[in-house]
Amino acid sequence: MSYRLLQFLCVLLPTLLIGGFEYIRHDFLLHSLSMETGNLYITILTFVLSLLFSIWMFRTIKAMNDKLANEQSKRAVYEERERLARELHDGIAQSIFFMNIKLKKGDTEAASRALSTIDNHVRQAIFNLRSEPEIDDSLNSRINKWLAEWSSLTGVEVEEAIQIPQGFFTTKEEIQIFAIIQEAFANIRKHADASKAKVIIEEMKDGWQLKISDDGRGINFSKKSNKQYGLSMMEERTKQLGGVLEIRNRHPYGTEIIVKKE
C-alpha cells in the first residue's frame, strides 16, 4: 500500500462514515432519535472510528517503514560485500604476482609467505561472502558469529563484551565498525602471535567506544612497516564514523586499539 493511498483513505473514510451516519440520522432517524441522543452517538462513533482507523493506519505505516529499512540495510550489506570482494581480488592478485617473482628468483621462503597470505585471503572471503544477509541479523549476532569462526580458525581465544542495544548504530555505522573489527583481528592473526583477544563495544556518556586488545607481541612503532599494516584502512573508516582512533601497546605486553566517538 502506497503513502498516496493512505492519504486518500485518511480523508475519504472518516468523511464517508461520519457523513453517512449524519445523512441517515437526519433523513430516516430524526423522529426516533432526539438531538441530544444523536449528538452523543455521533461523538461515540467519531471516537471509535478515529481510534480504529489510526491504529490500522499507523500499523500499516510502521510495516512499510520496517520493510523499507530492511531493504536499505540489505542493500548496504550487499554493497559492502561487493567492495570487500574487490579488495579481496586485489589482495590475491598482488600476492600471486609477488609469489611468482619470488619463485623466479628462487626465494621459496618468501613465496611460501605469499601463499600463506593468499590462503588467509580465501578463508576470510568464506567468512565475509558465503552467507546471505539475514532479516533479523543484528550487529551483535554478526560479530559473535564472525568471531566464533575466526577463533575456531586461528585457535586464538576471544572474549566479547558487547553492551550496545540493537538499533543503536545506523546501517552505515554498523558496516564501518564491523569492518574495523575484521581488519583488527586480521592483524592479530598475521602479526600479533597472541593466544587471547578481547573486543568491547560500550555506550559512553556522550557517545560510544570500541576497544580491541590482545596479549601478543605488541607493535614496534619505530618500524615503518608496523605503522602501515592495516592501519590506514582503520583510520579511514574511523574518520568516516566521525571518531578518533588510538593504537597503543599494553603493559606488560599486547596491543590495544580504541575507536571512540563522542
Score class of each variant (00 low, 15 high):
Phe127Gln: 08
Arg237Gly: 05
Ala184Tyr: 01
His26Asn: 13
Ala194Phe: 00
Met204Lys: 15
Phe58Cys: 05
Leu49Cys: 12
Ala85Lys: 09
Trp146His: 11
Val48Gly: 08
His251Pro: 06
Ile180Arg: 00
Ser54Gly: 00
Ile18Arg: 05
Arg142Val: 01
Ala184Glu: 03
Gln7Met: 10
Lys172Asp: 13
Ile257His: 03
Phe185Gly: 10
Glu235Met: 09
Ser50Met: 11
Lys211Ser: 04
Lys172Ser: 12
Ala76His: 07
Tyr41Leu: 15
Arg86Ser: 09
Phe47Ile: 14
Arg86Val: 13
Asn39Ala: 14
Glu149Ile: 01
Ala148Met: 08
Glu134Gln: 13
Leu68Ile: 11
Ala93Met: 10
Glu202Trp: 02
Glu174Ala: 01
Ala161Asn: 12
Lys224Gly: 10
Leu103Glu: 01
Gly155Lys: 01
Gly218Val: 02
Val77Tyr: 09
Gly242Lys: 03
Asn128Arg: 06
Ala186Gln: 11
Asn220Met: 07
Glu132Arg: 11
Arg123Val: 02
Phe168Asn: 00
Phe221Gln: 05
Lys261Phe: 07
Gly230Lys: 02
Glu159Gln: 11
Asn187Cys: 03
Lys172Trp: 08
Leu84Phe: 05
Trp208Asp: 00
Glu256Gly: 01
Ile162Ala: 00
Val11Ser: 02
Gly91Trp: 00
Ser73Trp: 10
Glu236Trp: 05
Glu132Asn: 09
Glu79Leu: 10
Glu203Ser: 11
Gln94Lys: 15
Lys62Thr: 09
Ser225His: 08
Ala179Arg: 06
Arg130Cys: 05
Arg217Pro: 04
Arg142Leu: 02
Arg25Pro: 01
Lys239Phe: 09
Asp66Gln: 13
Pro14Ser: 00
Glu183Arg: 00
Tyr229Arg: 07
Leu51Pro: 03
Leu153Thr: 09
Gln228Leu: 14
Asn140Lys: 15
Phe21Glu: 12
Lys198Arg: 15
Ile44Lys: 07
Ser141Thr: 11
Thr15Arg: 01
Lys239Ile: 07
Lys105His: 12
Gln124Asn: 11
Tyr3Gly: 04
Leu16Pro: 05
Leu30Thr: 13
Asn65Ala: 10
Tyr253Asn: 12
Trp56Thr: 07
Met57Ser: 14
Arg4Thr: 12
Ala93Thr: 14
Ile143Asp: 04
Ile188Pro: 00
Leu9Lys: 01
Asp137Ser: 14
Glu149Tyr: 08
Gln228Ser: 13
Leu231Glu: 02
Ser225Glu: 15
Asn70Leu: 14
Ala125Gly: 15
Phe185Glu: 12
Lys62Val: 07
Glu160Gly: 01
Met234Gly: 03
Met64Ala: 10
Arg123Asp: 10
Glu256Ser: 00
Ile92Cys: 06
Gln240Gly: 11
Thr46Met: 07
Ser151Glu: 03
Asp119Met: 12
Lys62Gln: 15
Ala161Trp: 02
Ile177Leu: 09
Gln228Arg: 13
Ile212Glu: 01
Leu84Gln: 14
Tyr3His: 10
Glu159Val: 06
Cys10Gly: 08
Asp214Gly: 05
Gln176Val: 06
Ser195Thr: 14
Thr238Ala: 06
